[in-house]
């Protein structure tokens, strides 16, 4: 019963959030000095006459006042129609679905990789607190957080495709091969470098957080007793450390979807990986308003889902949160 109530609250919050985001985005875009017709035509602008311009504007519904356009757009979106992308000439929903299918695998791989590596590195640093291992890991984490993700991608490209040509330069599938012939192995092979680069974005956060938490646990009385009983090393970590820090780490990882998506935008650009991130860049640099709005809404949903999952995990694992919900509502 309480679970359904929580789900209801989350759904209401989601609807309100999406409504607010779409109103603000639409308002921002309609006050923008960018002329969508010009952005759409691009370099051919000189060859297009007034009449043609008006025809194009009318075709995309750009000749109506903003409020009307917004209502029109809202009505369509409630029916599941997000409009047509100007650059891909396809329904926005199709473009997003198609692109996200590519991105999803990449995001998932990077997410898992950064979680596992970050957790391991943070645990190791805390268990070896004060030694050179701890210092190296901490230094590495701070260095990672100051590294531009796309630069790291460029360096990996130089090393692993130019100097040691063991990985492909980019794209999600081999060039010049028809869609049916592409195996999942090909896809995996093309994904290795982007996934490693993208995982770098998340590692430092999770590692530093895990280190802090584990140090807290290691300073507690029960760990002191465990040490007095002679427990140490990996066993101590597994019995007393890991159990206590796993949950906040997983939650943090789910709450990091925003950075993950941002990282994917940059890294897909570096590796010409045809995912949603690349579509975001195309949409904003070439002025594809319907697609940009669709992506803004979709990425908001993506971040929201991450946070909602984090809430649910907490609720399922930690009974105190359940109590809290009852007191609050």
């Amino acid at each position: 019963m309480r679970a359904t109530r929580m789900l209801m609250f989350q759904l209401i919050r989601l609807v309100l959030l999406l409504a607010a985001v779409s109103i603000i985005t639409f308002a921002l875009i309609s006050v923008s000095p960018i002329d969508p017709v010009q952005a759409y035509i691009g370099a051919d602008m000189l060859r297009v006459g007034e009449e043609q311009r008006a025809a194009i504007a009318a075709y995309w519904g750009l000749d109506q006042p903003p409020i009307e356009r917004f209502l029109h757009w809202l009505k369509a979106i409630v029916q599941g129609d997000m409009g047509t992308s100007m650059i891909y000439r396809e329904p926005v929903l199709e473009v997003i679905k198609d692109r996200f299918a590519h991105s999803f695998v990449l995001l998932l791989a990077a997410w898992l990789l950064s979680g596992v590596i970050g957790f391991a590195a943070g645990s190791l640093a805390a268990m070896k607190q004060g030694t050179w291992i701890d210092r190296v890991i901490q230094w590495y984490c701070y260095a990672l957080s100051s590294t531009p993700a796309f630069w790291a991608g460029l360096l990996l490209l130089i090393v692993f495709t130019v100097w040691l040509p063991i990985f492909p330069v980019g794209l999600a599938v081999p060039a010049g091969v028809s869609a049916e012939q592409v195996t999942w192995l090909d896809r995996l092979y093309h994904m290795v470098l982007p996934a490693i680069t993208l995982s770098l974005v998340g590692i430092s956060n999770i590692a530093l957080h895990t280190r802090e938490k584990l140090l807290e646990v290691l300073g507690s009385d029960y760990v002191r007793f465990a040490r007095a009983r002679g427990e140490q090393g990996f066993l101590l970590w597994r019995r007393h450390g890991a159990r206590n820090i796993m949950l906040p780490a997983i939650t943090l990882q789910f709450a990091s979807f925003s950075e993950l998506f941002g990282g994917a935008v940059l890294i897909e650009q570096v590796f010409s990986y045809p995912g949603l991130g690349q579509a975001t860049v195309e949409a904003s640099t070439r002025g594809d308003v319907p697609l940009l709005m669709g992506i803004v809404l979709f990425s908001t949903l993506f971040v929201f889902v991450g946070n909602a999952i984090a809430e649910w995990i907490y609720r399922l694992v930690d009974p105190r949160i359940k109590e809290g919900y009852r007191h609050e509502t």
């Binding site: 959030l17 985001v21 985005t25 921002l28 875009i29 006050v31 923008s32 000095p33 960018i34 979807f257 925003s258 950075e259 998506f261 941002g262 990282g263 935008v265 940059l266 975001t280 860049v281 904003s284 640099t285 002025g287 940009l292 992506i295 803004v296 990425s299 908001t300 993506f302 971040v303 929201f304």
Partner: peptide, 15 residues
């Protein structure tokens, strides 16, 4: 609630 980079791109596109 909007990914940072998407927000950046949106605002600089608008301007």
């Amino acid at each position: 609630s909007v990914p940072h980079l998407v927000l950046l791109l949106l605002i600089s596109f608008v301007l």
